[in-house]
């Protein structure tokens, strides 16, 4: 993720000292573990040495960023343009790291969203080198230079890399994204337990971080603003497939999804599945909901 590789040398030194104190005989398994640890330590030290050497020689090693700029409130910035930033490269640097460096060092007006820096908060989905990715989860070493950073396509740009997410949130809310069981347990404090199998079924769908990458990649959502879009449908999947909610609630959820602009608009282009930073099999979930909807309709006939 976004954390820099720490200076490891000092740490390993102190560790080595403490290891020596173990003089009593060890169980074979423990010995094996110790040996592995020692090997790993040697590996780390070797890597740290290499990195130090690289740092010493490659001081002028920079990354070239081309960043989309636009500010409606400042005259002269209302015409969108690309700014170039040359950021000193450090091993393990992500696109977000580079943007933060550029903002803190070169241009404090450079605007973008970020928070946790570890692919959990979902605020830094960006269009990087022609693809929706999380800035904090994308290593600069994986990208061709110059690295082109743009705000998410198919959303209104507010400023620089910040887009209006309102419509996305509306779509998410349209599927009623909260647990709501038909029947509640008798005791107020009773738990509503889920079977392991059922949990496994919805597991991937619970991973969504509301970053909007899928929605931005979807060709249909781009052309048709009323289409619920992959994120919202996946959210609905998470609850519709949850057996604890009961059949009535599930039917209600399917009724929302089988509207004209619900699941049927999905054209199985797999764009959303490709870009999802949390590897959610979105297309698979949408397809399953289509089949569920058809099945429940056939039952009605």
């Amino acid at each position: 993720m976004s954390t820099h590789v720490p200076e490891t040398e000092t740490e390993t030194d102190t560790e080595a000292e403490t290891e020596v104190e173990h003089s009593e005989p060890l169980a074979p398994a423990q010995e094996e573990r110790m040996r592995k640890k020692a090997e790993a330590r040697a590996d780390r030290e070797e890597r740290a040495r290499q990195e130090a050497a690289e740092r010493a020689t490659g001081d002028d090693d920079t990354v070239h960023l081309k960043v989309f700029r636009f500010d409606p409130e400042v005259e002269g910035k209302q015409e969108p343009r690309f700014d170039d930033f040359h950021v000193p490269y450090e091993k393990g640097m992500t696109v977000l790291d580079a943007l933060i460096y550029a903002r803190d060092t070169f241009d404090s007006s450079l605007t973008f969203r970020h928070s946790c820096r570890q692919a959990i908060c979902g605020s830094d989905a960006l269009f990087i080198n022609g693809r929706q990715r999380l800035g904090c989860k994308t290593q600069l070493s994986d990208l061709d230079q110059p690295v082109r950073v743009e705000p998410l396509p198919h959303a209104e740009v507010e400023k620089d890399l910040v887009v209006d997410m309102d419509h996305f949130y509306d779509q998410m809310e349209a599927v009623e994204p909260y647990f709501d069981a038909d029947e509640l347990p008798d005791g107020e404090l009773d738990e509503q337990r889920q079977t392991r199998e059922n949990r496994e079924k919805v597991k991937m769908s619970t991973r969504c971080i509301w970053c909007g990458a899928c929605m931005s990649s979807c060709n249909i959502a781009a052309g048709n603003n009323e289409y619920l879009g992959p994120a919202a449908i996946n959210k609905a999947y998470r609850f519709a497939m949850d057996e604890r909610e009961g059949t009535e609630r599930k039917q209600h959820r399917l009724n929302i999804l089988e509207q004209e602009n619900g699941v049927w608009r999905c054209q199985t282009q797999f764009s959303c599945t490709e870009v999802c930073p949390k590897d959610i099999p979105l297309t698979e979930h949408i397809q399953e909901l289509k089949r569920e909807a058809v099945k429940s309709n056939l039952k009605f006939w």
Binding site: P72, Q78, P80, R148, V157, K159, T268, Q269, F270, T273
Partner: peptide, 27 residues
């Protein structure tokens, strides 16, 4: 009072070259 900006063609920049198999299949 932020007014937003529609990027027009900038938005589609480089998209067709980035299409994945599923997208080409659809096209």
């Amino acid at each position: 009072m932020s007014q937003s900006y529609d990027r027009g063609l900038v938005e589609d920049f480089g998209r067709w070259r980035e299409f994945s198999a599923g997208m080409w299949a659809w096209v």
